[in-house]
Design a protein around this nucleic acid. Structure first.
Lengths: 109, 109
DNA sequence: CATCAGATTTACATTGTAGAAGAAATAGGG
DNA sequence: CCCTATTTCTTCTACAATGTAAATCTGATG
C-alpha cells in the first residue's frame, strides 16, 4: 500500500473540489482556487494536478452535457474517490498534529 | 518581492522548529518530525530542506557548544527568521482559507 | 584508532507552474 | 444553410522547485 503523500497544491485542489461539490470542472476549480488562495493559477497547472491525482486514483471524473452558451463544450467534472478522501483526511490530520501547541492560528481574512 | 510558496515538508520542518524552540538541530528536528508525522524521515531529507529554507532566508542557524557525550560534536541550531515566520503564517492562513466550510476537521490522534 | 553523534553531498523522483496547442461548440454573415 | 471566427474547455510539453534516500564526510570521545 503506497504511502500517498500530497503536495500543497494537490491538497488545495482537492479541497476546492470538495467546496464546489457538483460543478467541479477545470475552469471552475481554477477560479475558486485562485480566489481562496488569493493568487493566480494557470489552467495548465490545475489540469496537470488533476491528471496526476486521477492517475493515483485519488480523483475520478465524468463528462457532463455541453451547455448551450457560446463555445460551451462538454465539461469534465471531478470528484474525490474514497481513497482520495482518505488521503486528504490523513494530510489534514498530520497538519493538525504539526500545528498542535504552536500559537499560529490564522487571524481571519 | 518573490512569492514564497512553501512545500508540505518545508512547512512541517518549520513548525517542528517552532515546537522545539531552542534545541532545534538536525537530529532533533528529524526525530520530532518523524514523531508528529508518524512516519520516518531520513536526515538527508531534513538537512536538504533546512539548507533550502536557509538559502531563501526563511531560517537562520548558529553553532552551539560540543556536548561531552560520546561523539557529541557541536550542533547547528535553527530558528525562523522574521521573513520565515511571515511565510509560515501566510501558508497557514491560506490553508485555513481552503479548509473553510468543508467538514474535514481531524479527529484527534 | 574504533566508534559515535552530527552534518554534508549527491543523485534521482515527484510536484509545481507556465505557455502553447488542440477540440468541441455556437453565432452570424453571406 | 454552411463557412469560419470566436468562445470555452482540455491536453500536451517543457522546465523549475521540492521531496527523499543513501553514501560520505567531520570532529569528538573512549
Amino acid at each position: 500500500m503506497g504511502r500517498n503523500t500530497l503536495g500543497t497544491l494537490e491538497q488545495a485542489v482537492m479541497m476546492v473540489i470538495l467546496a464546489l461539490g457538483d460543478g467541479a470542472y477545470g475552469v471552475a476549480i481554477r477560479d475558486e482556487l485562485s480566489r481562496r488562495t488569493r493568487r493566480e493559477h494557470t489552467l495548465g497547472a490545475v489540469y496537470t494536478t488533476l491528471d496526476r491525482l486521477s492517475a493515483k486514483e485519488l480523483l475520478e471524473s465524468y463528462l457532463g452535457e455541453p451547455t448551450p452558451t457560446r463555445g460551451g463544450r462538454a465539461k469534465r467534472y471531478f470528484k474525490l474517490t474514497g481513497e482520495g478522501r482518505q488521503a486528504l483526511d490523513h494530510a489534514v490530520n498530520t497538519r493538525h498534529e504539526l500545528e498542535y501547541g504552536l500559537g499560529l492560528a490564522g487571524k481571519g481574512a
